Simulated assay, not measured.
Amino acid sequence: MLKLLPNFLTLFRIFMIPALVIVYLIPGPLGHWLAVLIFYLAAITDYLDGWLARKLEATSEFGRMLDPIADKLMVVAVIIILIEFRDINGIHTLAAGLIILREILISWFREYLTDRGVTLAVSHIAKFKTTIQMIALGILLLGEAGEMISPFIQEIGLVLFWTATLFTLWTAIDYLSEGMRLLKEKNS
């Protein structure tokens, strides 16, 4: 039963997306704070599911496929919410688009490689990118409620969002070049 826990956490993360959207719609600061709480809880389950899968020796094909999908769904859903409610607007939508494009491209590329017997490990820089991205998105989810923390919280969130975008581009190039190298090496 314990070996199912990592996959349960991944599914839980997916089911948290509609909850995040619903609480974000609650007027006033409460909705924003609840959305941030749900978002960071989801981010923690992202770390825990992989750690538990390794610790319990409970890795599975289902988990390998579903975990990145859950991650991408959460990130894309939050970005869409932030664009819809104008917390991300103007030039910042370019960063949002680049992040979404990278997530789709690299997810496809990893599956493409897997189908050809090539495994592309998650890089340390990609883990760092994800951490910055999660912090930035959480801050941006605060919206006006974040002004309780600092009058500059939105600006801090946007700087971190652009920082995550730069790391997003870096990791995309890194994954594409490493994946092509591994594919070429396997085919030679």
Score class of each variant (00 low, 15 high):
L56H: 10
W170P: 04
I83R: 00
L48T: 08
M180D: 06
A53R: 10
M134Y: 09
E185K: 05
K55D: 09
L41S: 14
P6C: 12
I135S: 00
W170V: 14
Y24I: 05
M1N: 01
N89P: 01
D46I: 09
R110M: 12
R13V: 04
L142M: 10
I153R: 06
F39A: 09
K127C: 00
L9V: 12
A70N: 05
N89S: 13
L160P: 01
G50V: 08
I125T: 14
L52E: 13
I149D: 02
K127E: 06
L137S: 09
N7M: 07
M1D: 03
K186V: 05
K72W: 01
N187G: 00
V76L: 13
S123H: 03
E111H: 13
L137C: 09
K3M: 00
W108R: 03
I38H: 08
W170D: 04
W51C: 12
I153F: 09
A145K: 09
T171F: 08
I99A: 05
R54P: 13
N187Q: 13
F39P: 02
G90D: 01
S123M: 05
G63M: 08
R13Y: 01
T119C: 07
L4V: 04
A58P: 12
G63R: 10
W162Q: 02
I106S: 06
T59C: 09
N187A: 13
V75M: 13
A136F: 11
I106H: 07
G146Q: 11
P29E: 15
S60R: 11
W170F: 15
V122D: 04
I79G: 06
T10Y: 02
L182Y: 05
L5E: 06
H32Y: 11
I14G: 03
I99W: 03
K184R: 12
A145Q: 08
E61M: 03
M148I: 15
A126T: 14
T130G: 15
L142R: 06
V118D: 02
G157Q: 09
E103A: 02
L52N: 14
G117V: 03
A58Q: 10
S107W: 04
I156Q: 04
S107R: 08
L82N: 03
I88T: 01
L113R: 12
S123P: 06
A53S: 11
R86P: 01
F39N: 02
S107G: 15
V118E: 01
W33F: 15
I17L: 06
L141D: 11
A95N: 11
E178H: 13
A42W: 05
I44P: 00
I139Y: 08
A53Q: 11
F12K: 00
W170T: 11
I135G: 04
G138W: 07
R86Y: 09
A58L: 06
A42M: 04
L176T: 13
I80Q: 01
K129Y: 07
D46Y: 06
E144M: 03
E61C: 02
I153H: 08
E84Q: 13
F128R: 02
I88N: 05
T119I: 15
I14Q: 03
I153K: 01
Y112T: 03
L48H: 08
G90K: 02
T171W: 05
L66D: 04
Y40C: 10
V23G: 03
F15C: 03
A172P: 05
I173G: 15
V36K: 11
A42G: 14
S60Y: 09
T59G: 10
R64C: 02
F109L: 08
V78K: 01
E84S: 12
R13G: 01
T119K: 14
